[in-house]
Simulated assay, not measured.
Amino acid sequence: MRGVSKSFHARVLTDIGIDVAPGELVALTGPSGAGKTTFCRILAGLERPDAGTLLLRGQDLAAKPAGLRNIAFLFESYALYPHLTVRQNALSPLQAPNRSTGRMDLTSANRRVDEILELLEISQLDGRLPGALSGGQKQRAALARALVQTPAVFLLDEPISHLDAKLRHKLRGEIRRRLTAQPAPVIWSTPDGSEALSVGDRVVVIDGGRVEQVGVPEDIWLRPASVRVARLFGDPPMNLIPGLLKRESGALSFQRRGMNLPLPPPLAAAAVLTGSENVTLGVRPDRLRLEAIETTGAIPGEIYSNEPFGKYAIVTVDLGSLLVKVKATMAAADGAGSVGKPVGILFPDDEMTLFDGVTGATLAHSSNQSEL
């Protein structure tokens, strides 16, 4: 894609430019309404861009109709043929009369369908019509129809979003393994940041129709390019705390009501270089510690909520005008007390990110960021 833009009643995509290599799986992620589905529909030939070019293996796709692009597209809405069974839906692209690579003989086609239905755990449903399927079963039937193909490109729009958590985690790895074993480039669209990090060789983050960041999963996690990227990743995502930079006794500190936090050298140096006063401090919940309120350096607050998850708990702390989430051990969460109890939050000496308070762009990262 080069400089691709698209508008309907308003601008949906603006100057999109990415490359996807043969055999590469690129995860496309962003919030709802970011433009992910329009991105896929333009590549598939179902929408025309207002500007920009699309090249596939060096050939311009502009004049090629959707049916001749040899792209396997899994629609977010499934788009199953209602009068065909699960097996017949999966067979349909292999038996299509205008298939660019020719019809596959029925025995070979059924063998490939059997393999995919078994992978997706819907072999027992092969004789059912779509009207007799649940939402998750319909999604897997539509996914089977895409995966049986050997296309020039795979476009998967939220391929596992409606599956239960256990099956989603299992199939994520299985599907990725199958896709990356063949030469076609893959674009996997998902609003789930964790899913994007787990499946993508690279991740493209879009928000408001613009590319915010492109990088390998480690870069996206450790070095978010903006607050818009930072808030998409993590469970819970990075705490984003607006405030001001103040210089006291020659040292820079981050301040807001109830907080006065000295900045570690890497962050202080970046702040000096940019000259920005309005900033946003980013820190991941697992890097914060719950301490007694009288602990030296702790920011005072009170317990707003405590959500146990077995091995850990998510404790939300009210700092007066701000709620901050802490991912703590069960022992630390139990020791902090119940809702309404006073507690202190100890910020790390490093492993924080500073963003410009106006543009949202990253100013700097501290060293020794936590592992992905």
Results as ranks from 00 to 15, higher is better:
V204N: 03
L25E: 02
Q255F: 06
K36G: 05
T190V: 08
L61P: 09
E277N: 11
N368H: 12
R223Q: 08
P265A: 10
Q255H: 13
A230W: 01
E118L: 11
G17E: 14
L261T: 12
P264S: 08
L74W: 09
G135Q: 12
L129F: 14
S194A: 15
D201P: 10
P224V: 08
V324S: 11
L117R: 04
D192R: 05
L252K: 04
D201K: 07
T295F: 11
P49L: 02
L13Y: 05
A10F: 13
R111Y: 08
N260V: 13
S100Q: 11
N239F: 09
L84V: 02
Q59A: 15
N368I: 01
I160F: 03
V148H: 06
A142K: 03
V326P: 03
G275S: 07
P265E: 09
P31Y: 00
A328C: 14
L119E: 07
T295K: 12
V229C: 07
K64Q: 15
L119A: 12
R69F: 07
A230F: 01
A34L: 02
E218F: 05
D207H: 07
F309C: 13
L155C: 11
Y78Q: 10
G23F: 09
L56T: 10
S366P: 05
E47P: 05
Q59F: 11
F309L: 15
P262E: 06
D334T: 13
G102P: 04
L240D: 08
G301D: 04
S249H: 14
S338C: 09
Q255R: 14
R176I: 04
L56P: 12
A152W: 00
L133Y: 00
S198Q: 15
I187Q: 03
L261N: 13
S249A: 15
L222N: 05
L240Y: 10
K138R: 15
G275K: 01
P191H: 14
T190D: 06
R172V: 10
V279A: 04
V20N: 05
P217F: 06
R145Q: 00
A181F: 07
D201Q: 12
G35N: 01
S7Q: 14
I18S: 04
N306L: 15
R99K: 00
V20I: 14
W221R: 03
D334P: 08
D114I: 02
A364R: 04
Q137W: 04
R103W: 01
P93M: 01
L80T: 00
T37L: 00
G310D: 08
A27K: 01
G35R: 01
S194W: 10
E195L: 02
D235A: 15
P65E: 12
Q149F: 02
I314L: 15
V229D: 06
A34V: 00
S189E: 05
E277Q: 12
V211L: 10
I175P: 03
I220C: 01
L288G: 06
L125Y: 12
G102V: 01
A364V: 02
V199M: 09
Q124C: 12
G243D: 01
S108Y: 06
I345H: 05
T29H: 00
Y81W: 00
D114C: 07
T295P: 07
A333Y: 07
L240C: 12
T190I: 04
E294T: 11
V315C: 07
L156A: 06
S321T: 14
F309R: 14
G45F: 03
N110P: 01
I175R: 08
N110Q: 07
S92K: 05
